[in-house]
């Protein structure tokens, strides 16, 4: 490290910072940041926050032995310890005759007690989560209902438009039929017109012939 020793004499660098390589003659910010990031990546995980610690403290850890629940101080405890010490050579026999039942029972009760506590805690958490989910679901369903209402409205509008289109289609169809009828009528009238014209022309010829005859 360039100039590191000289620098360390003046300032108190933490061990982590001491490991950061800095070329003071040619500062490279990108490289410093890169080193800092590498350091952070190798750091141990941060301590759990107080909230997490509190949560963990709700559930006591299971006792390792039933004896842990009893007082470990005072003359009773001392007497017990002495008696246990005295009885230690006989302990296999005692265990065989009396102790196992009591021990097993107590251990089972404790385990059950602990399990109950865990279940209670889990239930509380579950209730909490369920109520949270209920709220979220209620919000979601409200949103969904709003969306559905909007979609239904759109559908109604589309249905109305469909009806309108159908009516327009019928109207157009009727107009076409009427137009066709009128066309046929027009053609018939044109033929009649032509026949009448011929008749008129014929009558005019006859008129002229008759006039000639009368004059002669």
């Amino acid at each position: 490290m360039v100039g590191q020793e000289e620098n360390e004499k003046k300032v108190k660098l933490t061990p982590g910072e001491r490991e950061i390589y800095i070329d003071y003659d040619r500062i490279d910010v990108a490289s410093i940041m890169e080193q800092i990031r590498r350091k952070i990546a190798t750091q141990p995980r941060p301590k759990p926050s107080e909230k997490i610690i509190e949560d963990k403290e709700i559930i006591p850890p299971p006792p390792r032995s039933p004896w842990e629940l009893e007082a470990t101080y005072g003359w009773k405890a001392r007497a017990k310890r002495i008696l246990l010490k005295l009885m230690r050579p006989l302990s296999p026999l005692i265990k065989l005759l009396i102790f196992p039942v009591y021990y097993e029972l107590r251990e089972t009760v404790l385990k059950l007690h602990h399990a109950n506590m865990r279940i209670d805690y889990a239930c509380t958490r579950l209730d909490h989560l369920a109520s949270k989910m209920d709220t979220e679901l209620a919000k979601l369903s409200q949103l969904l209902n709003q969306r559905i209402d909007r979609v239904e409205k759109r559908f109604e509008e589309i249905d109305q438009l469909k009806e309108y289109t159908k009516l327009l289609h019928n109207l157009a169809h009727n107009l076409v039929v009427e137009m066709s009828k009128l066309k046929i009528e027009l053609d018939t009238l044109k033929i009649h017109h032509r026949i009448l014209e011929k008749d008129v022309r014929h009558l005019e010829q006859r008129e002229r012939l008759l006039e000639k005859e009368i004059v002669q």
Partner: peptide, 11 residues
């Protein structure tokens, strides 16, 4: 980290 480095390393 960055602040700590800047505060401690005068150079």
């Amino acid at each position: 980290w960055a602040l700590s480095l800047l505060l401690r390393d005068e150079r």
